[in-house]
Design a protein around this nucleic acid. Structure first.
Lengths: 215, 215
DNA sequence: ATAATATGTTAGACTTATCTAACAAATATA
DNA sequence: TATATTTGTTAGATAAGTCTAACATATTAT
């Protein structure tokens, strides 16, 4: 039986692997809030179970088996987030933490029912794709708002940070999922961005623009 | 932070205390599927935390603090069961095991939302009372079907066993919550019961009659 | 290229929740 | 009432997941 800790390691390694930098011990340590030696001993166990491949001083990568298990948990997480928003009436900024707990429920029936109620949804409330039962992800071609050329207009389709703080901030400045965003200007020095959303001009910091995914 | 195991011990001790026999080590051991010495060491820990009172070779009883915590978990369990049936469309025989998992979710918001959606419900799908936020139970005056005199007619309001096997059996023989049941006859030897439900005469074993609560 | 710094690893300890083996007390039975 | 049986307890072991302290390797900067 997969433990809660194992599921969290698999998910974190999967998520870190999506960045160019890959999954390293110190990044995992920071993400999971455990000390470095803990990462070491746990990753060794995961390697014994053939869920990650690991060589000393190199990073970690998931095996096919590990990736499949990570995607199962991610599916549960994202289905739950959508269920919480669509069926239970939560705001998109409230659901991440609750889903972090619910994703560890074992009952397959529970999530199959969510899937049914939501009619096989493809995206969670933050625009992230929901893996299907076989772990397949709808492939997306997203760009960072921070990389879009001046003058272009793009559609805001996802965030890469689902924290309450970040999402509340977006709501506060009037940016919501699927808004059209026109890039007015960008400061070269720090990436400070002037944009137009719903005819209103706003300024976003470089850090924020890096967390906004558009197409 | 209360652990999952702790929550299960508190709940089990609470449930056993409702019987006349009270909570003993062997009954807990059977209910939780752990060996006797495990019960001993865990109950000692709960006693250290002042959640149960315990003297060697006597049974266990919950302190006020322990009872309050047990009722919190029971509230989560029963709210979940009702949510699963009413909002998600599960059958009453499917929800017990799922609720055993969901009851350990920490997020108070999650259960407050269920409570809101269900409009402060008083009873779960098996007729069991749902404790309110302060741990207060609507008081009920239930009797066992096995103790009702011949000739009386009673209303089936709850079961004391929410297992899928038992509930499926009841459905199969055409008995559902809130049915009127007339006691036609009872065999003294083994409690075998002849009843009339919806104009149909059926026979129930003594064991089954002991799991049916009526008023 | 070497020293300084940052990152990763090993060893060993601790806590929680479980187990088995051995023993003790309480209860039932002859 | 004495013995047998059932029930409860203690001691000590184990696995999972975490920690700190000490050490090793890689990376960065001079």
């Amino acid at each position: 039986m997969r433990t809660l800790a194992e599921e969290n390691y698999l998910k974190a390694i999967y998520n870190l692997s999506q960045n160019e930098t890959g999954a390293t011990a110190s990044k995992l340590s920071e993400k999971l809030n455990v000390k470095l030696p803990t990462i070491n001993s746990m990753v060794n166990k995961l390697a014994d179970k053939e869920l990650v491949e690991y060589q000393k001083y190199k990073g970690f990568i998931l095996t096919e088996k590990g990736k499949k298990q990570a995607l199962e948990v991610i599916r549960k997480h994202r289905l739950t987030e959508l269920f919480l928003v669509k069926i239970m009436g939560f705001g998109w900024e409230e659901v991440h933490d609750i889903a972090e707990e619910v994703e560890h429920i074992k009952s397959p029936l529970f999530f199959e029912k969510m899937d049914l109620i939501l009619s096989n949804p493809k995206y969670d409330p933050h625009g992230a794709p929901i893996p299907d039962k076989n772990g397949k992800l709808p492939k997306t071609n997203l760009k960072l708002l921070s990389n879009i050329e001046i003058g272009k207009t793009v559609r805001f389709v996802a965030v890469s940070d689902s924290s309450s703080d970040f999402l509340s901030y977006l709501s506060r400045v009037g940016i919501s999922l699927y808004s059209s965003i026109e890039i007015i200007d960008r400061e070269v020095f720090d990436g400070l961005l002037k944009i137009k959303v719903n005819k209103i001009t706003t300024t976003l910091s470089g850090q924020v623009a890096e967390k906004i995914l558009v197409e």
